[in-house]
Design a protein around this nucleic acid. Structure first.
Lengths: 218, 218
DNA sequence: GATTTCTGTGAAGTCTATTTCACAAGATGA
DNA sequence: TCATCTTGTGAAATAGACTTCACAGAAATC
């Protein structure tokens, strides 16, 4: 697992450095910035997973900073530091795109909890939007392909025309099309003698499809 | 669970009736036929899940019967009764589409095991090719829709434009399109104040996606 | 060796999913 | 009240998935 990069933006030098220190002690890679403007310049290069930004700063404040970053980098989590723990502050921070906020007299642990929570959430969300899943799920979303998987799951290995006949499909090229798709997704493979069979990965997916069908019906 | 219907085709009356009796004793609904020809006429009406057919019969034998049935009803399992337990018989039976075979002096339990095994397999296969899965999987196979699910999974409830901004999508109608799709699949719902949230079913699917993504990466 | 069956490829057509655009009613805030 | 933001709808354009057709070499069978 890679070390997560965090950007800390606060004009208050003492606070900023203390935050940086806490985070570095906990094995994060941290970059401190004095102003939102400077942060914006560095952000592309640094590519942080998370930004902690103070709401009240000379020049651009956290509120103005938020939409700028979120627009270009929707995958960066932003924790806002608000001066007073008023409901207004919190709500308006969340509304303009902050993922979390810290009310200013905060403890070391408040900070760490918020940071970890948001990094976890990020990982969680990115896992779901992994692009590799697109193809696999699309591949499984076709009934003919699932039938082929089911058939191979039972018969262990089959040749092309056996599969075609077993499915009762009249046009063999149609089956061929779907076999290609399954092969491309590494769910089935073809050995020496042209026989098709499930890959280990394919076996797992068949299991998962059953799980799914149980959840769907429950 | 519904009672499974089984068709037994054998010209040998004693054998046929004894099979029928064994199966009926085990709570299957059984129809006996004397010839393959008669069976073909009844098959549509009876709609059995499984057929047990003797290989050697006057008139149409099991071998000729097999492809006829499998062609029109690929979802009916067929167990062939072969006179002699030669490898040839077994292999050629399987090749022409039999799902299983019984070598002729067989025991009551051999029969029941084979029947149950094949009915299980049928259920297994049909579960995988359930058509309801098509839509759900297709719905989940889109990255934007998964991102929406991930977001809602974290934020509990969000309004339309919040989601749109959170995803960094410029065209809100695009998001609307995917929200509709998710709603149609009962993964998200919209309450009183227009806020979107995951349905219980949606929560389950998010869980499922995580399981899946872990398998995919391992 | 001739013929049929098996295993495929590639192009063209069809059908479906997705995106984009133009527009609008209702809610909200200045 | 007027302007703006929210939350949509529906048509048209585009892209992608799936099917169908025409053909062909390799393997099996006669």
């Amino acid at each position: 697992m890679t070390i997560e990069k965090i950007m800390v933006i606060d004009d208050d030098r003492d606070l900023r450095e203390s935050i940086v220190e806490i985070l570095e002690d906990n094995d994060f890679s941290v970059i401190g910035c004095e102003t939102a403007e400077k942060a914006l310049q560095k952000i592309k290069l640094v590519a942080p997973q998370l930004i902690i930004v103070d709401n009240m700063m000379p020049g651009m404040g956290g509120m103005a900073f938020l939409p700028l970053v979120k627009n270009d980098y929707p995958n960066i989590k932003i924790i806002m530091i608000t001066a007073f723990s008023t409901v207004d502050n919190a709500v308006s921070a969340m509304k303009s795109g902050a993922d979390d906020y810290l009310a200013k007299p905060f403890k070391r642990d408040d900070l760490l909890v918020a940071v970890r929570r948001n990094l976890e959430a990020l990982k969680f969300e990115q896992q779901l939007s992994e692009s590799g899943m697109d193809e696999t799920l699309a591949c499984l979303s076709n009934q003919i392909r699932r039938q082929i998987l089911a058939t191979l799951s039972r018969k262990k290995e089959m040749r092309f025309m056996d599969i075609t006949r077993h499915l009762g499909v009249s046009d063999h090229t149609k089956v061929n099309f779907h076999l290609k798709s399954l092969k491309a997704n590494n769910l089935i493979s073809q050995d020496r003698k042209k026989t098709y069979r499930l890959t280990p990965h394919g076996v797992k997916m068949v299991d998962y499809l059953h799980l799914l069908s149980q959840r769907l019906s429950s």
